[in-house]
Amino acid sequence: MKWSGFSKARSNPRRKERLLSRRSLLRRGGWLGSLGMLLGGGLAGGARAATDEGSAFSDSIGDFFQKQYQEMTKDEIQEAIGRIERKAKRRYNVDIKVGDAPPPPGVVFGFALNLSRCTGVRECVEACVQENNLSRSPQVQYIRVVELKKGSLDLHESNHYYDTEKVPLPDKIYMPMQCVQCNNPPCVKACPVDATWLEPDGIVVTDYDWCIGTRACMAACPYSARRFNWADPVIPKDEINTDTHFLGNRPRERGVVEKCTNCIQRSRNGRNPACVEACPTGARVFGNLLDPTSEIRYVLDNKRVFRLKEEAGCDPKFWYYFD
């Protein structure tokens, strides 16, 4: 059945494990965390709440012992968020808000893109960079738009460096590509430390604080969707988006991998991703695959859709169509 793939994602066993085995986790990694808290707390001069000012030094100790996102308790996540917010304040002197919205129940996100409408203006790319606090130098972009000659969808004949000023050319089509949020993601399999995983709402996320930077996920991704921070990301202070999510657009550090999260900070709060909003021709459709009345379901049911590189066997949730 067409939708069978999604039920797997909905009942993610790891989520349950997180609740069930907290006690065993405390036994496993807890002593490290407590040691970190002890050291950090002691050095900062006694116990304190997460929202209190912590020193850079005690925060870095807390960072070092921070557990993987899926293993953290609610309190530990709040502490981690406190550290992230303070770090952003110290580095950029802005007050950011780091959210932790859980996956909404009964939702699996999907994307569709109308290639007949895309004119290749790359406004989605720009909006994505702004929304997701992507590094301006070195440049990081989640979306790659390529120019193809009409008559072929062979990516090896595509032009990645076409001139946005001249689009659309009459004999060309334009094809935006980004993370397709696979149901069978090779990147998740490749990571040696479980720093990236598939959330129950179908988004493949990364814990930037857990990634050790092996870049195996990048080698494994058939869609070239993952980006590495080769240097400290640089973002102009006044352009920082302060509305962030722990697994999404919060400020990143060098040496870790990141990727498109369907704008998790927006989509989990019922909003469209920035690229969908920015597209001047309305080529992009985003929505809940489990809701039969959603626009994305209408597209899948009524248009002749196809998926890129289906032969790679990753079962992506990103469809293209012409009309």
Binding site: R28, C191, D194, W210, I212, G213, F228
Partner: peptide, 23 residues
């Protein structure tokens, strides 16, 4: 990229994605 986080790979203390990850 982050050798300072190498302990994340230690089985039982960190998270060791065995046997799925080839690394």
């Amino acid at each position: 990229g982050r050798p300072d986080r190498l302990w994340h790979m230690i089985p039982f203390i960190g998270r060791y994605n065995f046997p799925y990850s080839l690394l």
